[in-house]
């Protein structure tokens, strides 16, 4: 079998090889309970990566995702008491609206998404600091359990978060494969000029991609704050780069148009397994980041499908 045919399948092959490799060293790793635990832990990261996939799929980037999630933890903590379940709607709506703003600045004002999303991220950070008074906030435990407890419970041995993740993945997969929006985003990512010359309203679809990214970052923030039962303006720091990496490793290159949300699911798992495996291999805390970086280079070098990249910049 020639290598070109193999390329699109490399992400999940990498995942299986990694899992098998870690499993061989420590059989405890392969126990279903452990694997489920591992998967459950990364759900907020996964949801953020899922959103980022849309921004990257059209050839952009959303650097506001982390600040967005931060802000949402604060918003959720502050307004849970007064709004109850509606706080979820407010959070997702806010994420969608701010994502739309990023999209507007990118497409209508011609500011590269790199800058526009960063700036919107700054706005989110300001809002979070202002709302929280720069303190860590706590949710009322009883109210949290009553309204959002289902998010973090378990069904049998399966963490409920996994159902949320699966639900969102299914929804995103449906959008990507079966809707006008998904098709338009694919066209924009693979050939923006051709999409425009076919009469698609490219601007609107690009704005929507950023809005979806914002909304999903908000969901990630909401889940995170429920998990931690509180919020703070910097609580989700350290999410952004792993989320971007998850998208890239999964096989959605920054040039856009290829890959998709399913790839991101696999990419997130690869990132999670690499991280977890360091524990099993006894890599010291001080060495972990360096090893992570090296493994990352190897993983990206293996997984990206260069035939779809015109020039490597």
């Amino acid at each position: 079998m020639d290598l070109q045919r193999l390329k699109p399948h490399l992400p999940w092959i990498t995942l299986i090889v990694l899992v098998a490799f870690v499993g061989m060293t420590d059989s405890n790793f392969l126990k279903p309970a452990n694997l489920l635990e591992l998967a459950g832990d990364i759900v907020p990261l996964f949801i953020m990566a899922l959103g980022l996939t849309f921004a990257i799929y059209i050839g952009g980037i959303d650097l506001s995702a982390q600040s967005m999630a931060n802000m949402i933890t604060v918003v959720a903590s502050v307004y849970l008491a007064s709004l109850g379940l509606w706080v979820a709607v407010v959070c997702v709506g806010l994420g969608f609206a701010l994502g739309l703003l990023s999209g507007y600045v990118t497409t209508k004002l011609f500011v590269p998404s790199f800058i526009s999303t960063l700036a919107v991220g700054g706005v989110c950070f300001s809002v979070a600091q202002w709302l929280s008074g720069n303190r860590a906030l706590n949710m009322d435990a009883e109210q949290r359990n009553a309204l959002f407890g289902w998010m973090i419970g378990r069904t049998g041995i399966i963490p409920n978060e996994l159902f949320i993740a699966a639900g969102l993945l299914a929804l995103c997969l449906f959008i990507e494969r079966r809707t006008v929006l998904g098709r338009a985003l694919k066209a924009v990512g693979a050939g923006e000029l051709a999409a425009a010359a076919s009469g698609l309203n490219v601007t609107r679809y690009k704005m929507l991609a950023f809005a979806i990214s914002g909304a999903l970052a908000a969901v990630a923030g909401l889940l995170f704050s429920v998990k931690l039962s509180g919020g703070a303006p910097t609580i989700a720091n350290g999410f952004l780069l792993p989320a971007i990496v998850a998208v890239l490793v999964g096989g959605t290159p920054l040039t856009g148009g290829v890959g998709g949300v399913l790839n991101t699911a696999i990419g997130t798992l690869i990132v999670a397994v690499i991280r977890a495996s360091m524990l099993y291999f006894g890599v010291q805390a001080t060495q972990q980041q360096m090893v992570f970086g090296l493994v990352l280079i190897a993983a990206i070098a293996l997984t990206i499908d260069r035939s779809k990249l015109r020039t490597v910049k």
């Binding site: 970086g293 990206i304 910049k313």
Partner: peptide, 17 residues
């Protein structure tokens, strides 16, 4: 032949690490 965005990001990780 890794896009510079990813290559440099990973090298940055290694550096900090």
């Amino acid at each position: 032949r890794i896009p510079s965005f990813m290559a440099s990001l990973a090298i940055g990780f290694v550096g900090t690490g």
